[in-house]
Design a binder for these strands. Structure first.
Lengths: 193, 193, 193, 193
DNA sequence: GAGTAACCGAGACGGTACGTCCCGTCTTAAA
DNA sequence: TTTAAGACGGGACGTACCGTCTCGGTTACTC
């Protein structure tokens, strides 16, 4: 019986999230409104407000579960190739609708709403960074990566240029771009002695 | 007479921009409204709409002239030190009110409004990237930087981690963070042979 | 030019009042909503709120001008007949849709909202009472009415039973009822000596 | 055992009515809500809806038993004095919080809800009218009242002016006002021959 | 004494309307 | 012509209650 209640609540929650995603794709995040989600989902506005404190929080919840899991890092033994592979996957995700524009909007919202930023980090960015750190640690032990490399920085260094291109330059990120970034990062900026 | 008119127009434009900044600091970009700017500035709404097509455009115009000019790159002959110096300045700017939070909001808005993103790149990001490219080209010729370094990528690589920390991790960027990033970037990730 | 503005404002005001009356007849005062008036009139809600502070005030304004003017008192020289004639007219007005039920609702609202009560008295009840007082004063001078009759009370005494029947007993008020009331009031309750 | 259930049900019913009165005094009838009564009484909304079909019905039930019984008519042998005494009592009741404003609100609600009006008449107005009729009948037999006086009208005539003053003019009804009304009613409007 | 039915509190739910805010457009009168 | 002022239609906000509806957890009555 407790199951039933949970199920009903879950049903509603899922319905709302799905509707949110639909509308976000049709209208974009900016024109998305809780009013419209409620109407399309056939749900009272309060039922949404009961679950999420803001449009941003709802949108994050709706968007993130969808594609968040795909970015595991392979382990072929070649660290540079493995990271490249994973980064290709990330770029493919970001570069294409529906996820790309929606994720961009989410990052935009994170600039206005710290709670969105926090949740984003906890649920999406953090885990990715952790996987990269772990994979690099392994590579470091295998001598494939400079022993003095600061692993806590690695994710920022590797994905920073990508996000820069995505959010600020707002140019399409290609595999070629990733290749060039990786070349530069692995080689270093200093001339070889 | 034409002069006077231009002056009046300029006066009004400046007044509106200044009021915009004031209100943005008090309320944040999200709660900023053209209505409120008009009221506070003692100006008709039309007078604002005649000059800017959107809140984002007005805000960009109001924010950018303010502190944009400070980020020149010194040339002491030591490329790493020079870039570091300039990046410290950038970090100091971003890290402190009022510019930091407002600039963050601007970048957030740029995710929703391509015209804001375009103007931002043209007026703020682009010139900075260009200066970094020029300074690195010089350094490359002086043999301080790897000859194969892709200069078009350099700004993204150098500032990407910073923006990642600022926009996504949303942690305060310290000089120490910059130091660690620069160490890693100049040394490269590959173990020295 | 001032004319134009006034005309436009008047147009809107009249349109809203007329729509209010329409909806009130269809739905009754209780189910009447400012939202629905705005929608049907093709007008923003604010345009209504700018003019009236409450549903009651709007309704009063919409209802009262409509039929308020009809209740003049004839002067045939026979005070009892004249008052009777005028009271018949009042009863006919109250007894029939659309005015009757709407006026009843207005009186109901006046119990909850003192400003409605005040406006009602000033614009509808007061003038009627004044006319009755004036007519009675004339009759008093002509010796048709007891010289000691308190004229300030007359309207309450004459129309009180009518309103009692209308608002409290909530039975249909007939001409016969008026006749019986008038007989009693003119004769007095005391036995003739 | 059946007693116990009845007692509990009664307890709840009384608790709800009392809470309703409390809240009505604090907020006024208009702002009174079943939701708030349920919350304050620590009772499920259903428990209220099970007992009363509407806010008006609940309010009537809560208000009327409280003070309804006090308006008996004395019998000193002087009909005018006796009615006056009873009317004074009525006026005192109406004129003072908490009963006055609440009763006014009830009458207001009766204009919107015929079932409230019906219950009001059956339980409050009707009995009063009946007592007045009976007392007058007695007086009529004793020759204190005109034999042709229509007793069915008497309550409307006697209390109509009072209700007019209370509901429509919305002025405080004083004993003096009652005196003047009674003088006029007993003497009649016609000049004595 | 264990069922069982009724009632209860709690509050979720779809829905309607509230009164407010701001959008971007439009009109007016003054300078 | 430009401006300040602000009315306007429109849309969404977040809130309050409506009346209905589960949901578990007592009672109190029946077998």
């Amino acid at each position: 019986m407790a199951e039933k209640r949970t199920d009903r609540a879950l049903d509603r929650t899922e319905l709302i999230k799905q509707t949110t995603l639909e509308l976000a794709q049709e209208l974009g995040f900016t024109k998305l409104s809780i009013e419209a989600v409620a109407a399309r989902a056939g749900v009272g506005k309060h039922t949404i407000y009961r679950r999420w404190p803001s449009k941003g929080a709802l949108f994050l919840d709706a968007l993130l579960p969808a594609d968040a899991q795909a970015l595991d890092i392979p382990n072929t033994g070649d660290i540079e190739a493995d990271l490249r592979t994973q980064t290709y996957a990330a770029v493919d995700l970001l570069g294409r609708p529906p996820f790309g524009p929606l994720y961009q909007a989410l990052l935009g919202e994170a600039q206005h709403d710290p709670s969105v930023a926090a949740a984003l980090n906890e649920r999406f960015i953090g885990p990715q960074a952790q996987r990269v750190r772990a994979r690099l640690k392994l590579a470091q032990r295998q001598g494939q990566v400079a022993p003095e490399l600061d692993l806590d920085l690695a994710f920022a260094i590797l994905s920073g240029p990508l996000y820069f291109q995505f959010l600020i330059a707002q140019e399409i990120v290609t595999h070629g771009y990733i290749d060039r970034v990786f070349s530069a990062l692995f080689a270093g900026m200093r001339p070889s002695p």
